[in-house]
Nucleic acid binder design. Structure first.
Length: 881
RNA sequence: GCCGGGAUGGCGGAACUGGUAGACGCGCCGGACUCAAAAUCCGGUUCUGGCGACAGAGUGUGGGUUCGAUUCCCUCUCCCGGCACCA
């Protein structure tokens, strides 16, 4: 055995063994209950980043632990290979996205393999392979047949200079990222998936996901946003009716709004509609100022965060609708905060009882009419209308025949009265919107449709799937290259055989990632999307990934699985039984603003912190050796744009895979964000070296004086018993920390503590060495899911011929844990005043007497008789005086 | 803006079900080894007072419940994630 820990050699030896033994090939017929552990697959950006290392190490620890517990494990890996970055790289370097992507996959695969993850590489998939995306297209066509996929118009960001659709990410301060042109909104036809059809089920079944983090379930529930309310129809007044060419005062021609607060209906003093609403467009035809306002709204962002924070703007149309009960005319406004394509694109305005309406009314001098008062007496008078809106439930006032009702009763009564007159009904509304999947981009899965001048839109027949994406195009930023490639779009109509044009839109990459977990069970099946092996492996038992995917990816996957279920492809509804959402990897951010141009960011490895007189200065060393004072901007997620990343490959080369893995698992619990620390990495390495050195000393001694005898449990010295107790306590804690709590950091801390105890243990008698042998074996087993390479080698050195990867996880020895005496803490009035030692089976009276006998305790009791004695078994005594 | 999460020594974090606040690691201080340095090993390290035994304060802010609160409840502040075309 080498005296020094040589990580490169150790990594190589362990990885070579796993490779030649085929240790991680998953088989459906192997013994043990199946365990499918999946980490979210990476986008092949070119380099592994620390977030990947963290994600895959967590998954690997759980996989290896389950395997040692006798489970038949599957841990696959693949590539989320379509997407915008490949097109950006193409523009920057003139490389085809396909080549760029496949080169990246090759180098990232090498990096992953260097980290020694227990992955079954024979099941590798890439979503850009036609053998994979064929099934996106196939299922899309099935959905289209059932109306789950349907076509309507949707709003996109349009760059008028490049003549192209922009992703939200490509819009910076309302301008195109390349051209700087003001971005416009455009309505274009798009395909949508009818996820709202499943809204109720997706919401209800969150309750069955008991092994998901509560916060993810809450976020999904809020995202789906079920609300019960009432549709209310406001019939057109004469002016609106004339403009729209419809009858006035009639239920057949009315503006529909949805409200959860029908009890405030009598407080309506305006209605607001979206800029693109038909009434707004009709009114604007005769009103240039209104048209200008509508154009302004159209230029605004479509992002919810922007809509919510931008200044609320509105403009009168001069038109009216009629209140459904009073018949009073209500003015119609166009407002920038009402979104087309959401709800009815119209809302009723009740300034007295809604904060946003209140602000809008104050700004435009609209009347504020109070119709609900507090019923609890907490607010005797309604909040004065010039201060704030009263948004709570209460009792209706000034509401005609509905006055004096509790809000909920008022909603029921008003809904019933509306229904009786054909002007409304109760309805459940979801915040969730249907999923728009059309992208006017090249590097994605083609939507398998053909446009025929005679037959219209025609599906590509199954026999012609997949519609293969040409891989040699290089996008240049203006429009979709597919639309300029006749060899792709020129085709013949499957119906009439005449000349036709192939659809050039591709699918949202979230489609690719919505079912990849199922394909790992049968990546080689060319004839079907999924097969019987899916029944064996799925659902995923443990899913691991970033919290940033808490809503979209996970919700789309849950939806997609239900669609597959309803087509009879799978027999479960929830794809991921247990979910672990890991936190971000953070590092410091340093920047400096040059006189001209963009901010420059400096990598933390090049920045020194200098402290003088309590003032910190941050000084970066530049490539040419010169030094520059920079600004500190706190911690942020590692990213290229902030230049605060750390390359995992350098880390592995310098310290080995185990140090990288150990640091990641030790620095923070998996769900929390993790702060990068070079010193922490060194600490992890030092620990592994100490472990190596300690085992080396033990093994070397055994080689000279002979192997230790069998452990004689009945004949141990107190010191030997104490070490054995620590060993088995640690084993129990590590088992619980990895298996139940998933707090790898505390598991590692416990083993570190144990190694400290082992190095204090100086007994080298035969029984002493037998205790040490057991201690080192358990340390090695406990650490093996986390640092498998060094443990693989140490296990051999400890004299075992069977490879550690195939060894079972041991159970703690109850006999080693038994204790004759306990130490209890004594409190007086809840404050710590002493410690006592009592027999493990001491009764309350004996504990009380021992506590009262403690000298320091007596000082604080000062002769008084305790009023109350609280005993927490095996822990504490509290004397209340 | 809305939804979700977080805040504990000089730093990362521990304290699992209301019961010893600061495990473990980093950093720092002192010592051993060394011609010296690095590495390694040993000891110390929340703050204040005290030679010490020990005492007082202390878990972002302000309040509450309790024999006892980092943990439960209310208030506020700051930081992070998501917001539907980044993945």
């Amino acid at each position: 055995m080498d005296e020094r820990y040589q990580p490169a050699q150790v990594d190589r030896a362990a990885q070579a063994y796993w490779q030649q033994a085929g240790s991680f090939r998953a088989r459906e017929d192997a013994p043990g209950e199946k365990f499918y552990c999946l980490s979210m697959f990476p986008y092949p950006s070119g380099r592994l980043h620390m977030g990947h290392v963290r994600n895959y190490t967590i998954g690997d620890v759980l996989t290896r632990f389950a395997r040692m517990q006798g489970r038949n494990v599957l841990q696959p890996m693949g590539w989320d290979a379509f997407g915008l970055p490949a097109e950006n790289a193409a523009m920057a370097n003139g490389v085809a996205p396909a080549k760029w992507t496949r080169d990246n996959i090759a180098s990232m695969k090498e990096q992953l393999q260097a980290l020694g993850f227990a992955l079954d590489w024979e099941r590798e998939i890439a979503t850009c392979d036609p053998s994979y995306y064929k099934w996106n297209q196939w299922l899309f066509l099935r959905m289209r047949e059932k109306g789950i996929a349907y076509k309507r118009t949707g709003v996109v960001n349009w760059d008028p200079v490049d003549q192209t659709v922009l992703a939200n990410e490509q819009v910076i301060d309302g301008r195109g990222w390349r051209t700087g042109a003001l971005v416009e909104k455009r309505e274009i036809p798009m395909y949508y998936l009818n996820i709202t059809r499943y809204a109720d089920e997706l919401l209800r079944d969150l309750d069955t996901l008991t092994d998901w983090p509560e916060r993810v379930r809450v976020m999904q529930a809020n995202w789906i946003g079920r609300s019960e309310g009432v549709d209310v129809a406001f019939p057109y007044a004469a002016d609106t009716a004339a403009l729209m060419g419809k009858p006035a005062g009639d239920a057949s021609a009315a503006m529909k709004v949805f409200t959860t607060r029908a009890d405030t209906l009598f407080g309506v003093t305006f209605v607001a509609i979206a800029a693109e609403h038909p009434i707004a467009l009709a009114a604007a035809a005769k009103d240039p100022a209104l048209m200008a306002f509508i154009d302004e709204c159209r230029r605004g962002s479509v992002m919810e965060a922007d809509v919510a924070t931008m200044e609320k703007k509105g403009r009168r149309t001069g038109l009216h609708v009629l209140h459904p009960f009073t018949g009073e005319p209500v003015e119609i406004w166009v407002a920038n905060y009402v979104l087309m394509g959401y709800g009815e694109a119209a809302v009723m305005g009740v300034p007295a009882h809604d904060e946003r309406d209140f602000a809008f009314a104050r700004q435009h001098g609209i009347a504020i009419r109070t119709v609900v008062k507090s019923s609890t007496g907490a607010y005797d008078t309604v909040v004065a209308p010039w201060i704030d809106a009263y948004g709570e439930y209460g009792v209706t006032v000034d509401s005609g025949e509905f006055s004096g009702l509790e809000s909920k009763a008022a909603i029921d009564a008003i809904a019933a009265a509306l229904a009786a007159r054909g002007l409304g009904r109760k309805r459940v509304q979801y915040r969730l919107r249907d999923w728009g999947i059309s992208r006017q981009r090249y590097w994605g899965c083609p939507i398998p449709l053909i446009h025929c001048p005679k037959c219209g839109e025609v599906a590509v027949p199954d026999s012609q799937l997949p519609v293969v994406l040409p891989e040699d195009l290089v996008p240049d930023g203006s429009g979709n290259p597919l639309a300029r490639t006749p060899s792709f779009y020129e085709c013949s109509c499957p119906h009439c055989g005449g000349p036709a044009r192939r659809e050039t839109d591709t699918m949202d990459t979230f489609v690719d990632s919505s079912w990849y977990y199922a394909r790992y069970a049968c990546p080689d099946n060319a004839g079907a999307m999924v097969d019987a092996r899916v029944r064996y492996w799925l659902p995923v038992d443990q899913y691991v990934g970033g919290i940033e995917h808490a809503i979209l990816h996970l919700l789309y996957s849950r939806f997609w699985t239900r669609v597959m279920r309803d087509f009879g492809l799978v027999d479960f509804s929830e794809p991921f039984r247990s979910l672990l959402t890991q936190g971000m990897v953070l590092n410091h951010i340093y920047w400096q603003q040059p006189a001209e141009g963009r901010r420059l960011y400096f990598n933390p490895k090049d920045v020194d912190v200098e402290e003088a007189g309590g003032v910190k200065r941050y000084v970066a060393t530049l490539d040419d050796g010169s030094r520059l004072e920079v600004q500190y901007d706190g911690l942020g997620t590692m990213s290229k744009s902030k230049n605060n990343g750390v390359d995992p490959q350098g880390l592995v080369e310098k310290y080995g895979a185990d140090t990288a893995r150990l640091f990641m698992m030790f620095a923070a619990p998996p769900e929390q964000s993790l702060e990068w620390s070079d010193e922490g990495v060194q600490g992890a390495f030092r620990f592994l070296r100490r472990l190596w050195t300690a085992v080396h000393a033990h093994v070397t001694l055994n080689a000279s004086v002979g192997a230790p005898p069998a452990l004689d449990r009945g004949a141990l010295t107190p010191a030997q018993r104490e070490l054995r107790r620590s060993v088995h306590l640690t084993l129990g804690k590590v088992t619980d920390d990895i298996g139940r709590r998933r707090t790898f950091n505390t598991a590692i801390a416990a083993v570190m503590e144990l190694l400290n105890a082992i190095s204090r243990f100086e007994d080298r008698s035969p029984q002493g060495r037998a205790v040490l042998q057991e201690a080192f074996e358990i340390v090695t087993l406990c650490l093996s899911p986390i640092v498998p390479h060094i443990c693989h080698v140490l296990w051999q050195e400890l004299g075992h011929s069977r490879a550690l990867v195939d060894v079972r996880w041991p159970a703690a020895d109850a006999q080693a844990l038994a204790q004759a005496e306990l130490t209890l803490v004594v409190q007086v009035n809840g404050r710590l005043r002493g410690r006592i030692s009592v027999a493990a089976d001491a009764d309350e009276a004996a504990i009380r007497d021992a506590a009262l006998a403690d000298e320091n305790v007596r000082r604080f009791i000062d002769g008084a008789e305790p009023r109350k004695v609280i005993i927490v078994p095996r822990k504490l005594v509290n004397l209340v005086v």
